[in-house]
Amino acid sequence: MPIEIPLDKWPGSVREVKIGATAPEGGTRGRTVVVGGQKSMPFMHFEAPAPHRPVIAIEVKNRRPEDWSPLLANVWGDAMDDPGKWAKAAETVGADLIQITLSLGTKPDEAVQTVKAVLASTGLPLIVFGPGQAEADNELLVPVAEATKGERLLLGICEDKNYRTIVATAMANGHLVNARTPMDVNLAKQLNILISDMGLPLDRIVMDPSTGALGYGIEYGYSVMERLRMAALQGDSMTQLPMLVTPGFEAWKAKEAKVGSGVPASWGDWEQRAINWETLTAVALLESGADIIVLRHPESVKRVRSAIEELASEPVTA
């Protein structure tokens, strides 16, 4: 018996945002990444085809992170001592973009050097995150933005405490901002309005509604993203922005990924469990509307990629 699938038709759409600039566009990237453009809820391409699939960024750091899992240290090896090499390795395992996260304590000169080294080693577009403290972020991101004028970097973390500085430097130097708020639809929208009021065009803003790992508040983050996406499709211009989330960062903090010993045997193999945690966190967030997923483990990248391929290409027939 044929089943008719009910179709939604939404009046609004998500804005397209392009990250990175090639030489003719004023940058040095080998290619650019475009996200957004959806006219339907995630993977409902039978309602309206999505022009762009979600993309995967791999996170690298400018200094070997001492607090990362030994599982990640094993898989990335010596590349972790050299952000340029690390970024190249990330490109090799299938990243669409590189997120370079600057460690706390990094000096402005060092930050500029690192970002330039990563730009030289890979042709992928870059996301540059400061250490995640408003003042330190300002201190590092401003010189980085100035030294890389025209590259259309995605600069973060841009939050209510420091958005003025980050937005100003993004405007002056042809970059984009990653607008982060703590899992709250009202605050997410408010920050978009404030940034837009400063004059940065909406097609240079990505929103980062924050999230939690599987088992650590992901359902709350999921609802926030779903609600923002529905508002966007209903026509609310201040929510019509692509979303970035960092399931790699979140999942590797979770005990299930972090702890190798002293847990019940039924939890199974540590590495498989950790990868599962990162992958499942990421896939749930894809379903809630994430456009850019930042991961850490190459195997998770592979699995999330395969999930995206399957979700985005599977024909839905009656």
């Binding site: 605050l187 978009n192 009021d197 609600r227 209903q234 609310d236 211009s237 201040m238």
Partner: peptide, 15 residues
């Protein structure tokens, strides 16, 4: 609940 509340909601264009 047609439009998401933000403190600056009055500054957004009406639709």
């Amino acid at each position: 609940d047609k439009v998401i509340y933000a403190d600056a909601y009055l500054g957004q264009e009406a639709f």
